[in-house]
Simulated scan of single mutants.
Amino acid sequence: MTRTQDRYSAEIDPNSRHRSSYTANNGNCVELAQLPTLPDTIAVSDTWYPDRPGLRGSKTALAQLTQAALDGKLTAV
């Protein structure tokens, strides 16, 4: 039986990692990466905590999250 990969078990392409252009060279930044087996999925990770799993979702969901942040619709708890 072959298991279908989901977005949390799929491997990240290490050559597709991109760091935020706002990185302050202190290791505290956001990094995006592509999942080659799931082309519509993006992994988002915090380089301050490299051992923690990254957030993974569709490109559309990431765009919506980014727009909500830009629009001030997200609040800290």
Results as ranks from 00 to 15, higher is better:
Thr23Leu: 07
Leu32Val: 10
Thr37Met: 09
Ala68Arg: 07
Cys29Gly: 06
Asn15Thr: 08
Gln34Cys: 10
Gly72Phe: 03
Pro50Leu: 04
Thr37His: 08
Cys29Asp: 08
Gln64Met: 12
Ala33Asp: 02
Asp13Gln: 05
Leu74Lys: 00
Glu11Lys: 12
Lys73Gln: 12
Arg17Cys: 07
Cys29Phe: 04
Asp46Glu: 05
Leu74Cys: 03
Ala63Gly: 08
Asp13Glu: 05
Asp6Arg: 11
Thr41His: 07
Asp13Val: 03
Arg7Trp: 10
Arg52Lys: 12
Asp71Asn: 12
Trp48Leu: 14
Pro50Cys: 05
Ser21Tyr: 04
Thr41Leu: 09
Asn28Arg: 15
Leu70Thr: 03
Asn15Ile: 00
Asp46Pro: 03
Gly57Trp: 09
Met1Cys: 07
Thr66Ile: 15
Leu74Pro: 00
Tyr49Phe: 14
Pro53Tyr: 05
Thr66Tyr: 14
Arg56Val: 10
Thr75Tyr: 11
Asn28Tyr: 14
Cys29Pro: 00
Met1Thr: 10
Cys29Thr: 15
Leu62Asn: 07
Pro50Val: 03
Arg56Asn: 09
Tyr8Asn: 06
Glu31Pro: 01
Cys29Gln: 05
Lys59Met: 09
Val30Glu: 01
Thr60Trp: 10
Ser45Val: 00
Glu31Phe: 01
Ala63Arg: 15
Ser21Thr: 12
Met1Pro: 06
Gln34Arg: 15
Leu62Ile: 13
Asn28Ser: 11
Thr75Ile: 09
Glu11Ser: 12
